[in-house]
Design a protein around this nucleic acid. Structure first.
Lengths: 171, 171
DNA sequence: AGTCTCAGGTTCGATGACTGAACTCAAGGA
DNA sequence: TCCTTGAGTTCAGTCATCGAACCTGAGACT
């Protein structure tokens, strides 16, 4: 995005948008919540040009949203995982998912509290427990009849219910 | 933004980003919550090129986030106001303000429940009332010692506490 | 050793979005 | 009448994004 900064805005919204406001960035963060960790998996699932993906991943690492680690199983490869600051983006993501689901198109996935199996409400809280579960306690599963469009390995792996932040077994 | 769409993503987050994911869009929506209604006021407060502002306002009207009305006091001018769908973006905005305030820079404004004067918590709820007030019941005021940077008429008008969505008296 | 494949990038030209400045146009005031 | 102000539109230059092609290092295969 041309001039991703909004320097003249003295506002924490502007500061947040400088980090997560660029094209593709929030979709990358979403996939990170879904457990995607590898460059190729992001690439396969997002249809994003590799150059842009590389740029965004570097930016997210620099900004402290993602952490880059060496892949212990494959020398020379990396794994990307959300930092605590990145995990704290869950309320933002959830609010956008809810809004989009209400006004654009129902989301293809639903979210349950892993402790009790109850569907989360629009505020991200569990009506049964009366708490707002952190992402580690949220299980995401496909809504019936949806999610058959994409056939990349990540989309296939995500057809099974899956706990957020848990590394996805791809392929 | 080049190809603002994310067609291959079957996800309500992608749908939401197609509407509010472009540069400047969320800052325009923020100002609309602050009561900004006129083209020139958005322009003065955001330092946004007029061509882009015009494009974004048209897009937001098309997408049902803003409503364009004739200005009853000035023939040929317009007023922009949030639709119900636009007002429902408040949780998204608030979540981003909170995240940016925590990890980037404390926000220059704070938010209180107008009924009881209590500061809202990070989830946007009023701890005293136990409810999550809608934007019409939220008063925003400058945090002490902040907000002296900009001197445009909108920034000046916003130095007084102000109820969200209430048209701002500028100039 | 030489070749193949694959993940994870980088490089490249073409296309399209953003920018600031200049321009237009209509309404209202001096 | 001229001037100003609000609300845009137009335009050339700059910059981001796109998709395709290319590169590199690590195993794996022959």
């Amino acid at each position: 995005m041309l001039g991703k900064e909004y320097e003249r805005q003295e506002c924490s919204l502007a500061r947040a948008l400088e980090v997560i406001g660029e094209r593709w960035t929030l979709l990358i963060v979403r996939d990170a919540f879904y457990g995607v960790q590898r460059f190729n998996d992001f690439h396969a699932h997002l249809d994003i040009p590799k150059a842009v993906l590389s740029d965004r991943l570097n930016g997210l690492v620099e900004d402290g949203i993602l952490e880059r680690r060496r892949d212990p199983e494959h020398a020379g490869r990396h794994l990307y995982a959300l930092t605590p600051a990145g995990r704290d983006l869950w309320p933002v993501l959830h609010a956008m998912l809810v809004w989009g689901g209400r006004y654009r198109e129902p989301n293809s996935r639903v979210f349950r509290h892993s402790r009790c199996g109850t569907l989360l409400d629009d505020a991200g809280a569990c009506p049964a427990c009366g708490t707002t579960p952190p992402p580690e306690e949220i299980v995401s599963e496909l809504r019936r009849g949806r999610g058959k469009v994409r056939s990349d390995p990540v989309a296939v792996a995500l057809r099974e219910p899956h706990r957020l932040l848990e590394p996805l077994q791809v392929g």
